[in-house]
């Protein structure tokens, strides 16, 4: 029975889409089989040693040697073949209805999809997505969430009331504030300085609707057209307000007035993720990796790579997956 299960799940894992359940059954069955073998060896060790001394053992060793030789010669080819089957399959399939969709692509075009899976500490994040060439030169912004794009933040949101505020009147500004720290790395990379000297878009010079979108409230997907570029970097900057921790709290940065004024300023800084995309490579799925964080109050556009003081902010997204269509 164990052989049957192992063979069945083994074949299923190779021939069909990736399934954690199939792999789990395969692994558990394999471990139990190993356990049975060990148990069997323990009970029959004397008989085994006796039979090894006989001529029959030598006969049995010949096919075993041949099998191991064949295996060592073909193992890498088999592995390559297996991974070529699996390379373009997403690990988990999600219900497309579970995602908010921001479609910035044109009809009948080849698309790139960026899929954001909301994590434990996801709460109406400010998000920007942009492209840079392989030499890290800024190319274009693909998406910016509404508040940052339009320079509209809400003065009434506080550390104590923001959850209720966001549920009851999320987009009703009663007192807007100029906020500078939401996505400082992106705004400095973009390099458009406003009249007040800040780089974040303002109400007077907002980002156009074609690029902006409502602040996401859960898992979301962003579609945009494939460019003529073959190699580029896709970057994502994300920030959630009020996610203070031991290093970014009301007790820190006393001299930084930007940090201690306005709405939602206290908390961990923005995080920057990136993925190197190579359209010439057969890979169609890329996972964005955490690269660093922005300045805690947006005072500069540097990327800080020391992530020791960052805690829950890394759980805003469970993962960011980029899918390149053929």
């Amino acid at each position: 029975m164990m052989f049957l299960v192992l063979t069945g799940t083994g074949l299923m894992s190779v021939l069909s889409s990736y399934s954690t359940n199939v792999i789990l059954i395969h692994v558990i069955s394999g471990l139990l089989f190993l356990l049975i073998v060990l148990f069997h060896l323990r009970n029959n060790i004397r008989m085994l040693l006796r039979s090894l001394k006989s001529k029959g053992a030598l006969v049995a060793l010949v096919p075993l040697s041949l099998i191991s030789m064949f295996w060592s010669a073909t193992e890498s080819h088999l592995a390559d073949w297996y991974f070529s089957l699996k390379r373009d399959q997403p690990i988990v399939k999600f219900d497309p209805l579970a995602f908010e969709v921001y479609d910035k692509s044109s009809l009948n075009s080849q698309k790139i999809t960026v899929e954001f899976l909301a994590g434990k500490h996801f709460w109406y994040p400010q998000v920007s997505v942009w492209l840079e060439d392989e030499f890290s030169n800024f190319l274009q912004t693909i998406f910016v969430s509404h508040s940052t794009a339009k320079g509209v933040f809400y003065g009434d949101r506080t550390k104590d009331n923001f959850r209720q505020h966001d549920r009851e009147k999320p987009w009703v500004p009663s007192r807007s504030v100029r906020r500078v720290d939401a996505l400082p790395y992106w705004s400095h990379r973009r390099g458009i300085q406003q009249a007040d000297g800040l780089y974040a878009p303002s109400r007077d010079v907002p980002i156009v609707d074609a690029i902006s979108g409502a602040t996401p409230s859960g898992h979301f997907q962003l579609h945009f057209d494939r460019d003529s570029l073959r190699k580029f970097k896709l970057l994502v900057e994300v920030n959630v307000a009020f996610d203070e921790n031991a290093y970014y709290s009301e007790f820190d940065f006393p001299d930084d007035t930007s940090y201690h004024s306005g709405a939602g300023l206290m908390g961990q800084p923005s995080l920057v993720y990136h993925a190197d995309i190579d359209l010439g490579h057969p890979t169609k799925y890329y996972l964005a990796k955490l690269q660093g964080h922005g300045h805690h109050s947006g005072s500069d556009g540097r990327l800080y790579q020391d992530l020791q003081t960052i805690t829950t902010a890394t759980e805003i997204f469970d993962r960011i997956l980029i899918h390149v269509q053929d």
């Binding site: 988990v92 219900d95 579970a98 908010e100 709460w123 959850r163 859960g218 009020f242 996610d243």
Partner: peptide, 18 residues
């Protein structure tokens, strides 16, 4: 992991300062 969106009661920047 595949639930539609983040349940506001379960997600969000609460209990971040441990």
């Amino acid at each position: 992991a595949t639930k539609p969106g983040c349940n506001p009661k379960a997600c969000g920047p609460h209990d971040t300062k441990k």
